[in-house]
Design a protein around this nucleic acid. Structure first.
Length: 229
DNA sequence: GCGACAG
DNA sequence: ATCTTGTCGC
């Protein structure tokens, strides 16, 4: 996959925040994604240990959701975990894994927030500025925003509001399980993002692309390799 | 000043 | 995210 070199990552926290404010203006909300024409969906995730980031990208066919490619990349962690600045810690590794992907991908789901971020620049937005693929943020917990608990049925949703605007949606992907937080990464609209995430959740709470990437990242970290493919 | 806080 | 055993449930 083609990856653009938007900027370097050798920055201090204060500089990182200023850069986010600038980059947020380059993020595109929309156009709608024609989920019916999606052939491949990818998921990205990162596992860490002892100062090393193990990033992986899993590519699945759609709507079948079987894994067709898995790539991994290791990189030293040069930035601490600071709420709101996760991208500066993990994106360098994610970019490495994305460069190795050969299958044409129609959408990428990241295990983090997109626009549901204090400066509207979550990791999914950040990754989205480096690639020519629509990106979606699907986090397991909230970073910012208020919301009403969605209904207990699969498919129930509620708006995630921050600073007076709808920055994402709280989505119940399975009956009675805690909801996930979906938001726009780049080049896709919120409704399409939610539709895609739901279409990727069959038997588990998290979308298959992200779930597969997560498993692969842990295998890469623990066993030094990812297995299949 | 006091909490909250993606992974 | 990672550190960690067993346990309850489908």
């Amino acid at each position: 996959m083609r990856v653009r070199e938007v900027h370097g990552f050798d920055l201090a926290p204060a500089e990182a925040r200023r850069l986010q404010e600038e980059l947020a203006g380059r993020v595109e909300e929309g156009p709608p994604l024609e989920v019916g024409r999606v052939r491949h969906v990818a998921g990205a995730d990162v596992s860490t240990q002892d100062g090393v980031a193990y990033a992986t990208v899993a590519v699945l066919d759609f709507p079948g959701l079987s894994v067709v490619e898995v790539r991994g990349f290791e990189a030293p962690l040069r930035f601490p975990y600071i709420p709101g600045l996760l991208a500066f810690r993990e994106v360098p590794a994610v970019i490495g894994a994305l460069r190795a992907v050969e299958t044409p991908v129609d959408a990428l789901i990241c295990d983090a927030q997109g626009r549901a971020h204090p400066r509207r620049m979550g990791l999914a937005c950040h990754v989205g500025l480096f690639v020519d693929v629509p990106t979606v943020g699907c986090a397991k917990s909230r970073l910012v925003g208020g919301f009403r608990e969605p209904g207990e049925e699969r498919g129930s949703v509620s708006d995630l509001v921050h600073g007076g605007e709808v920055v994402g949606r709280v989505v119940r992907t399975r009956r009675r399980v805690s909801p996930v937080f979906v938001s726009v990464g780049n080049r896709i609209d919120l409704d399409s993002a939610v539709e895609l995430v739901l279409a990727c959740c069959s038997r588990y709470r998290l979308p298959e692309p992200t779930r597969q990437a997560h498993n692969a990242a842990n295998r890469l970290r623990r066993e030094g390799q990812m297995g299949l493919l």
